[in-house]
Design a protein around this nucleic acid. Sequence first.
DNA 1: TCTGTTTGTCAATACTTGCGCACACATGTT
DNA 2: AACATGTGTGCGCAAGTATTGACAAACAGA
Lengths: 120, 120
Amino acid sequence: MAPSDSDAIFSALADPTRRAILSLIGEHEELTAGEIAAHFDSLGRTAVSSHLRILRLAGLVAERRDGRFRHYSVTPTPADAVVAFLTSVYQNSLEQLASAVQGAATPEDVPVGRVEERSA
Amino acid sequence: MAPSDSDAIFSALADPTRRAILSLIGEHEELTAGEIAAHFDSLGRTAVSSHLRILRLAGLVAERRDGRFRHYSVTPTPADAVVAFLTSVYQNSLEQLASAVQGAATPEDVPVGRVEERSA
DNA sequence: TCTGTTTGTCAATACTTGCGCACACATGTT
DNA sequence: AACATGTGTGCGCAAGTATTGACAAACAGA
């Protein structure tokens, strides 16, 4: 199976700790790795660093290096992959409001493309 | 950490095969386990059954027993948990879509509250 | 400059979890 | 009884996670 971007994103979101980290970063503009690690007593810096690496490889967060610090922030775009998948599955119950969103947002940017699927 | 629903949902969505199964069911109204298994040459019935069990426990699919067959369909509501999380992180770029989704699925149940988070 | 400290990651190791398969079992049909 | 449909169980293998120890990079102070 082609290791598409969705794989990395959904795998990254599968871990509760990573979702908590993502939420934590989302509450602020930027956070250093140390500030993030400080919020998790039960985790060492290595574990947090590893999680941040996975989030970064998935494109969910961006890192800005400033001296010996590394500031992490949320990247807005990659949620599209998740929304695209949900849209493709829940078309029936969502197509109405999809058109509503189209009217409100950009009409052409509504990817209903298929997600990966093993050919039989 | 409280094993909230989000855990089961995101874990279920983490596997590419399960996402493919979910997409496959979403393309049709209902599918039996055998029909689903027929679409995946590289998977036995046991594996597909196991995936369906996980999807069912996560509330992503519903099963209707008809004789010796079991018809699976997509349940529309549980996408709320995913959208709720995405909303909390990507408030800016998704609030329109999120409000639209919540309005169509569960109008009164609008949990934009915090996702689980380890207290420091 | 030269230590010493802080920040963050890398490497190697144990532990846990998850996936897929083979087999057996339960249920329903003919 | 014989067959078909699906699932539960146990096993082997792979992947992910957290920890310990060590390392590179950047700053502060004497």
